[in-house]
Amino acid sequence: MVEEAVRDWEFFLGHMNYWLFIVLMMTGFYIVVAKGNLVKKIVGLNIFQTSVFMFYISIGKVEGGTAPIFPVDMNIDPAVVYSNPLPHVLILTAIVVGVATTSLGLALIVRIREEYGSIEEDEILKIEKEIALQEIRLHSEVMGERG
């Protein structure tokens, strides 16, 4: 009975990290889905992204391990446990690529603002609709003259 409780407790603690990152990820997801402001959406995407990064890094963590850097004199003590360096490499590059793509998104927002005068999703959709209706009217007039 006690053994089972201990195992349950270990399971709970061992999975706590995943659940925390899921909460974080869902927060980001909620911002992306529910907010109409485009800048806010980008921030939400960033939070989402960071939660994925932390998820990867937490997978690479080894109990009792240390940062994956050898001593400078390269006298490696085989007893020392190192954390998994592979996720670190992947995430390291992903962060820099992430900021580059984020800036691409922000640049798009700046252009949208210049064209539409707004960065709210629903206003942009309204303007789009008006433009489309106008074009349809224009086209039908041209066609009508021809007919």
Binding site: V39, F53, I95, G98, L106
Partner: peptide, 29 residues
Amino acid sequence: LDAVDVAFTEAAVGAGISTVLMLGTLALT
């Protein structure tokens, strides 16, 4: 979590560059 390299990047990128970029965008919008 032992990822010193990654933390280094995150601190430099997140707290430095992306904040400046966000502010730049806000100034334009």
